[in-house]
Amino acid sequence: MSNFAENIINLSNITKRFGSEIALNNVNISVKKGEIFTVLGKNGAGKTTLIKIICTLLLPDSGKGTVLGYDLLKEDKKIRANVSLVAPTVDVGVDPVLTVYENLMFWAVVYGLEGAEAEKRVKETLKILGLYEARDRWAMEISAGMRQKLGIGRAILVRHPILFLDEPTVKLDVESKFTIRNFIKDVRERFGTTILLTTHYYDEAEELSDRIMIIDKGNVLTVDTLQSLKAKLSSAETVYIKAEASNEQVKSILSMFSRFMPQYKNGIFIFKVPIFTNGMEEILKVFVEKRINIVEISGKSPGLEEIFFFVVGTGYKKDEKL
């Protein structure tokens, strides 16, 4: 997805404090219609506070904003009636002693769908979820992954334009995570839903996000596409140097660069060189000084995890020159 027409969420200078603790500090963000916007941050960074404010379950202390064109502070009921939420706990909204079908039918009525339309929508959703065959099974009998899908199914029953997914794959096994991620992509493709996602899984954010926001201690550190973040922050972190070195030289190198967690395996030196340092330059200089013949140098680009820790660790801001 690259052509996002309009901003569906606009926040301006949103600040929230809990006592003396600042949860969000002058947050400004715009989320475009139809994009998957991911919020990354450590525990307590302010991710959930941000989502709660956008879906009007929490009032900011200051700042303003619009969601779907509605005023965040004055038209909260209209916003709440037009957004869907999947909270982190797998079983929320899923009653174990109701069947899969009964669970969704209940929520269909709560969301204002009527009679035949409700039945049609529930069956359609079950088919999209891949749960149609399990429709008559009790929710307590199906797997955690299926229950999580059911929770997301509840949230998409009414095709609200915005879907909030707060850690949707937490506690799920690898297979269930894979299914849910594909399902999230599918929901966006089918319905053009704008998805605001929080996650602790960097691979999930890499796979799903159109744009990523990194937040720490209530401050937005950066908002950008993964490609742009990588371009700005590109530097090999894990460096592999294949070299012809004597045992003595190997020992010396390993001892000199202990801060880079060096290893030597099968004639290859491996270093963990922090990005945005002159560590690599330093290592190569020593190799030259010690007259060690370098056969090959390779490196591994930083993933989102490395970018995240770099951004959070340095307090990097979007407009700062790198």
Partner: peptide, 13 residues
């Protein structure tokens, strides 16, 4: 406590 308060609040109820 069962977390459905959020869901009911985010509905037309």
């Amino acid at each position: 406590w069962n977390g459905t308060m959020d869901l009911y609040l985010l509905s037309p109820l």
